[in-house]
Structures are given as structure tokens and as C-alpha cells.
């Protein structure tokens, strides 16, 4: 009796998980499928498969430029946000100082600000102080929103860090810099990594802030939106598919790296 109930509940869990996964991944699959169809509009099932949209997209010389702009922005945002977020997180979670509570509240504000409004506000401000909207300006705009998030992400790691490790290192003869370099930084490295990853992905996928502040430079997301509103072509899902392929390759490489590292560690031990 009980095993029957258990079998049922297991089956339902499987079905539920399957539905959720399908719901998550079907849209991505749809993008890839529509990029591979020959017809101009998305039809399912696909009647004739074709690589012509890939050819056109690559020949249009768009892929490279758009992705490079997006990459530049995201990489700069990740690098700067991690530095800002690291020291911000130390102030947020590590040290007790007068005004800390106020600082903790203040730093959250940009996150709660609607991005479209924030983008507009930044554009107005850039114009006023004479900064031209370019991808560099977009980096700054992204940072206003992303640096606080990265600060919070790293703070979680800082909260879990046993401060007495720093004291122990100091007591064992390390100077302040060595304490930082040998103990604090490596202990917080996982937080810095996830902070950087967050920053990169949030910047990579950002549209609202970019659309106000990149000016003539266009990111992938901006291009997708512009194309969508000015006339659909399967180049749009093709461009999307390129991003998906990129992600898959990166994930795959990361996985291989992880396995290689585990093998190496096992060999050493």
C-alpha cells in the first residue's frame, strides 16, 4: 500500500520536473528551431530546414560587432563591479563603523529603481555633464545598477568568513598586505567569482540601461529589440541561437576544466 503511494508520488514528481524543464527550455529550443527554418516566419513543424539565415547573419558582419560590443561592456562591468563590490562588501559585512546601517540601506536603492527610469535619468545626467553616449558610458550605467548587486553577492561570502583567520595570520607574522593576499582574498575568492559571473551575465543580458546609454554602439540585446520592432527576419533568432551556442561551448569548456582539475587534485593526493 505504502509502496504504491510512493510509486505514485515519485511518478508525479518526475512529471512535474519534466514539465518545469520543458517550460524553461522550450523557448530556447524554439529560437534554435526557428533559426534553422527556411521560411521567413516561424512555423512548426518546420517544413524545410536551411542554413541560409546563418549565412546571411554572418555575411551581414553583424554578429562579430554586436557580440564584441556586448562582450566589452560585460567584461568591463564585471571587472570594475568586482573591485567595487569587494571593498563595498568589506564595508558592508566585515567592519563595524559609524553609518554602516545607513550605507547598507543606501546601497540597495539603485536595485529597487526601475531600470527604464534609471537609464533615462543617467542619460539626462550624461547629457548635462557632457558625456557622450557610447559603450563606455553604458559600462558606467550598468555599474550603477550591477555594482550594488555584486556587493550583496560578495557580502554573503564575507559574512561567512571567520575574521579570526585574519588575526591568526597576523599573529603568525604576516603583515597587513600578506594577511590580505594570503588569507582574506583566497577565502573570499568564491564570492568574487560568483560576483563577477553575476555582473557579467546581468550586463550581457541588459537592455533597458543599454538602450539609453550606448548611443551609436549597439549591443546584442539592443539589436534584437530594434530588429523586432522594425521588421522581423529569422536573423533575429539566428543571432539568439549564436548566443545560445556560445553559452553551451563555455559551459562545456568549464566542465572539462573542472574534471581536469579534479583529476589533477586526485593525482596529487
Amino acid at each position: 500500500m505504502e509502496s504504491k503511494v510512493k510509486r505514485w508520488s515519485n511518478a508525479l514528481i518526475c512529471v512535474w520536473t519534466g514539465i518545469v524543464l520543458l517550460f524553461f527550455f522550450l523557448p530556447i529550443a524554439a529560437v534554435i528551431i526557428s533559426s534553422l527554418g527556411k521560411s521567413r516566419y516561424f512555423r512548426f513543424p518546420v517544413k524545410t530546414w536551411s542554413g541560409k539565415w546563418y549565412e546571411q547573419t554572418i555575411n551581414a558582419n553583424l554578429t562579430e560587432n554586436l557580440h564584441i560590443t556586448s562582450l566589452y561592456v560585460a567584461a568591463c562591468v564585471a571587472a570594475i563591479a568586482v573591485v567595487l563590490g569587494f571593498f563595498g562588501a568589506l564595508a558592508f559585512a566585515r567592519y563595524d563603523w559609524k553609518g554602516r546601517i545607513f550605507y547598507q540601506r543606501l546601497i540597495m536603492l539603485p536595485i529597487f529603481f526601475p531600470q527604464a527610469v534609471l537609464g533615462l535619468a543617467l542619460l539626462l545626467w550624461f547629457t548635462y555633464i557632457g558625456v557622450l553616449p557610447t559603450w563606455e558610458a553604458a559600462v558606467f550605467a550598468h555599474l550603477v545598477w550591477i555594482a550594488p548587486i555584486v556587493t550583496l553577492v560578495i557580502s554573503i561570502q564575507v559574512y561567512g568568513f571567520d575574521v579570526s583567520q585574519e588575526e591568526a595570520a597576523y599573529d603568525l607574522g604576516a603583515n597587513r598586505f600578506q594577511v590580505f593576499w594570503e588569507v582574506t582574498l583566497p577565502a573570499l575568492a568564491p564570492g568574487l567569482f560568483s560576483g563577477a559571473l553575476f555582473a557579467f551575465l546581468l550586463s550581457w543580458g541588459n537592455f533597458s540601461l543599454s538602450t539609453y546609454t550606448t548611443g551609436a554602439d549597439s549591443t546584442v540585446t539592443e539589436w534584437l529589440y530594434t530588429k523586432m520592432s522594425s521588421g522581423y527576419t529569422p536573423m533575429i533568432p539566428t543571432m539568439g541561437a549564436f548566443s545560445v551556442y556560445g553559452s553551451v561551448i563555455i559551459l562545456f569548456l568549464g566542465y572539462i576544466f573542472l574534471i581536469a582539475q579534479r583529476r589533477r587534485a586526485a593525482k596529487r593526493a
Partner: peptide, 21 residues
């Protein structure tokens, strides 16, 4: 004389081992 210059050493309550090492 700061701790890193004193010929003394402390074993902490939390032990304060460097967990990443």
C-alpha cells in the same frame, strides 16, 4: 609591539584554520 612582531602565538577558540589551504 603588534602581534606579528611578538614572539608569541595564539591558538584561537575557532582555531581560525585557513580553510582554503
Amino acid at each position: 609591539v603588534p602581534a606579528n612582531k611578538r614572539p608569541t602565538c595564539m591558538v584561537f577558540q575557532s582555531l581560525a584554520l585557513f580553510n582554503h589551504r
